[in-house]
């Protein structure tokens, strides 16, 4: 399966070229390999080929895979919808949780992190296109929620995450990425420390180039690395 290595190199090159063409430092952009529903063997190959961050969407599936591959083999990010009753496992298994979207969930993660004396890094997920089918905090609640999250002792807010609707033409996603940058500006203007807004997790296989142009620091790429089928 050398194609995983080839795919990974192609994605890295694409990130590098995009960053350079818009005057950004490529080191500021982190590639997250979305490995949901991908088997352990494939993930191991990607790690061997140099992938350092894996993104998983389902707690149960992720726990089994992380136990098999090793907690320290890579950085693990949780990028799926998180229910409060699974917060404990998310805290135990993940270095960064991208999908915090309510005060209730933040509070539960804080509580679980406190129990094991962890400072849990999180991102605030925004429902950028106001879709009923997607999770994420409402745009007009973002500033308030970010300020409240700053008050939790065991949470370390790192930035924002969004997931725009899928478009065949990635250009159509650009306005949503711009909106996320705008929300970050509003949160900063409300006095939240810049360190808590350093990361923007946006852009996937089909639109990460546009996302990087708009300021993404984390891109979540699955298909372009692992292919669309198993």
């Amino acid at each position: 399966m050398t194609w995983i290595k080839d795919n990974l190199m192609a994605v890295h090159k694409n990130i590098l070229d995009t960053a350079r063409s818009c005057g950004r430092n490529p080191e500021d952009i982190h590639l997250i390999g979305v490995s949901k529903k991908k088997p352990v063997q494939m993930i191991k190959q990607a790690i061997d080929a140099g992938l350092t961050i894996l993104g998983e969407n389902y707690i149960q599936e992720a726990m089994e895979k992380i136990d098999a591959i090793g907690r320290d083999a890579a950085a693990w990010h949780f990028i799926g919808h998180l229910q409060s009753n699974k917060a404990r496992f998310a805290v135990q298994y993940f270095d960064l949780i991208h999908t915090v979207d309510s005060f209730k969930l933040a509070k539960e993660i804080d509580k679980q992190a406190g129990k094991i004396q962890k400072c849990q890094k999180i991102l605030l997920q925004i429902n950028i296109a106001m879709e009923d089918t997607k999770s994420g905090a409402q745009k007009d609640a973002a500033v308030d929620l970010a300020k409240k999250i700053m008050g939790f002792e065991n949470l370390s807010l790192q930035g924002l995450m969004c997931m725009p609707p899928y478009f065949d033409d990635p250009e159509d996603a650009r306005s949503y990425f711009k909106q996320l940058v705008q929300i970050r500006e509003e949160i900063l203007a409300a006095g939240v420390h810049p360190n808590a807004m350093a990361q923007l997790s946006m852009g996937m296989s089909n639109d990460f180039v546009v996302a990087i142009q708009e300021g993404a620091t984390m891109v979540r790429v699955g298909t372009a690395i692992f292919g669309s089928r198993m």
């Binding site: 404990r88 805290v91 135990q92 679980q112 129990k115 094991i116 004396q117 962890k118």
Partner: peptide, 10 residues
Amino acid sequence: GHFVRSQMKT
């Protein structure tokens, strides 16, 4: 610490 019990003290 204890993983399953989700506890840790330092």
